[in-house]
């Protein structure tokens, strides 16, 4: 082979090496980008904080004679969507549904959001649902009756 042929041969020989090198470098870059996290999911914690906030303040029974709030005792007068919505500002990423099982009563926090994103629960890119259950006393007038409060929180 003469010099010119040798140079041409070497150049052609180099092309697959360059392609392989490019593939390896791009693989490293994409792998690093793929494993670097830029966000953290706090939807579960946020949901539990919201549930506690609703149960221990918005709908909790308050005895005005001694100025004491009883967490865990649900005041039936306060158990409605308007009351809950008036105590906590509307969120753009959370909605909740509260069910008093025995009484068959339902109240919502951010009802429009809850109903819009409830069908998307569990779908990737959709919403997430957190369900909890509390054993509470329901205060209706002067009587307190045990009941179960089921709370479903949808977050996005």
């Amino acid at each position: 082979m003469n010099k010119k042929g040798l140079i041409t041969f070497n150049i052609i020989n180099f092309i697959p090496k360059i392609i392989f090198l490019a593939v390896v470098v791009l693989t490293i870059v994409f792998m690093v980008r793929g494993f670097v996290r830029t966000d953290v999911d706090i939807s579960a914690s946020e949901s539990y904080v919201l549930v506690n906030r609703i149960i221990y303040s918005s709908i909790a029974y308050h005895d005005e004679s001694i100025n004491r709030t009883y967490p865990g005792i649900v005041d039936l007068i306060k158990f409605n969507s308007e009351r809950i919505g008036s105590t906590i500002a509307a969120a753009d990423n959370l909605g909740a549904k509260l069910d008093l099982v025995g009484r068959r009563m339902t109240a919502y926090y951010n009802k429009d959001f809850y109903e819009q994103y409830y069908p998307q629960r569990g779908i990737k890119g959709g919403s997430k649902e957190i369900k909890t259950k509390f054993y509470v006393l329901v205060r209706d007038g002067e009587t307190s009756v045990p009941d179960t409060l089921e709370v479903s929180v949808i977050s996005r």
């Binding site: 953290v40 706090i42 914690s45 946020e46 904080v49 919201l50 506690n52 906030r53 221990y56 303040s57 709030t69 967490p71």
Partner: peptide, 15 residues
Amino acid sequence: SKDIALIVNSIYASP
């Protein structure tokens, strides 16, 4: 931003 927002929510919820 998320941690501080969560803490503010918790402080609102605390008695």
